[in-house]
Amino acid sequence: MTEVAIGIIGGSGLYKMEALKDVEEIQVETPFGQPSDVVIVGTLDGVRVAFLARHGRYHHLLPSELPFRANIYAMKSIGVKYLISASAVGSLKAEAKPLDMVVPDQFIDRTKNRISTFFGEGVVAHIAFGDPVCPQLAKILADAVESLQLTDVTLHRGGTYVCMEGPAFSTKAESHLYRSWGATVIGMTNLPEAKLAREAEIAYATLALVTDYDCWHPDHDSVTVDMVIANLQRNAVNAQKVIQETVRRLAAAPPESDAHSALKYAILTPLDKISAEAKERLSLLLQKYM
């Protein structure tokens, strides 16, 4: 299998990349089950990339049902070193308007039922996660947005993404609480991805696509499903342009990232004390340290 260094995970509304050429579908087997869908490998302006629809191409998986470990492991198994995650989000700040794009640099975890580590069952590892997004990749992503000068889109560099459990949206009390914390956007998927990508030594950044204001906003009750779907569709078109430009810039000058050596000092269990079964399960992650 040809190794692919750049991966893309598409969220709500972004189930495929129209510009991909020479496409092949890869069914990846992982020790953590099946990914959300087949991995689509194709060429984007001469660069081979891997694309995965986070919720499946027909959006059949709830956020709590997503096979996060299988998704990230599948990307790792085909050689991905840089992962761009596109996600629909609600806004927690008046200045982050529907159709705007946010490239967050922080997360707050409000999930309850997610397995967000490859480790356990005989192997202990603690990654550093103070800066959960790769700053070099985030800069390339934000620069790409800025360079395109998209109509009706304001870029917000940095900000905090609250990752909630779902599938229900926030109560007003919760929404006001998150605003009091200074958070920028709210979604249901990106933090488990970011944690697992760091454990897999993959540089990770999020392109957060604002569809509407969260329920704190006085105009929120006038938001309709039709409006949200229309914004999802416009976001998906814009996101594809941004991803295409990001891939071009990333392929031209791939940066070194601290994420690429995240496990160097993270594994506490002596390697000679790890069971053969655990070594096999985690071989993709441990092989360069064995």
Rank of each mutant, 00 (worst) to 15 (best):
D100H: 15
F107W: 03
A138D: 08
L148P: 12
Q106R: 10
C134T: 11
T151G: 03
G122D: 09
V145S: 02
A128F: 08
D105S: 13
A125F: 01
I108Q: 10
I72M: 07
K139Y: 02
V123P: 10
K93G: 10
T111M: 04
P104Q: 03
D131L: 15
L137H: 14
I108P: 02
G122I: 07
L137I: 12
L137N: 14
L99H: 15
I115C: 04
L148Q: 10
C134E: 12
Q149V: 11
P98D: 13
P98W: 13
E95A: 14
D100S: 15
L150A: 05
F68H: 15
P132A: 11
K93P: 08
G79P: 09
C134L: 08
D152P: 09
A74K: 01
Y73N: 04
K76S: 10
A86Y: 04
V80G: 07
D100Q: 12
G120C: 05
K76M: 05
I84W: 01
F118W: 05
V103D: 02
A142E: 00
M101R: 00
D105T: 03
E121G: 00
D131H: 15
F129I: 07
D105F: 02
Y82V: 00
M101F: 10
A144C: 03
A138W: 00
K93F: 10
D143K: 04
I115E: 12
I115M: 09
A125G: 03
Q106S: 10
I78K: 11
G79C: 06
D131R: 15
A74T: 00
E146C: 10
I140P: 08
V145Q: 00
F119T: 00
F118S: 05
Y73F: 15
A86G: 09
G90H: 12
P135S: 09
M101N: 00
T111D: 06
D109W: 03
L148N: 11
I108R: 11
G79F: 06
L141Y: 00
F119I: 00
A94Y: 11
N113Y: 14
F118C: 06
I78S: 12
T151F: 10
N71G: 08
D143C: 01
Y82Q: 02
A142W: 00
D143N: 07
L148D: 09
K81W: 11
A128Q: 10
K97V: 06
F107V: 09
A94P: 04
S91E: 01
Q106W: 05
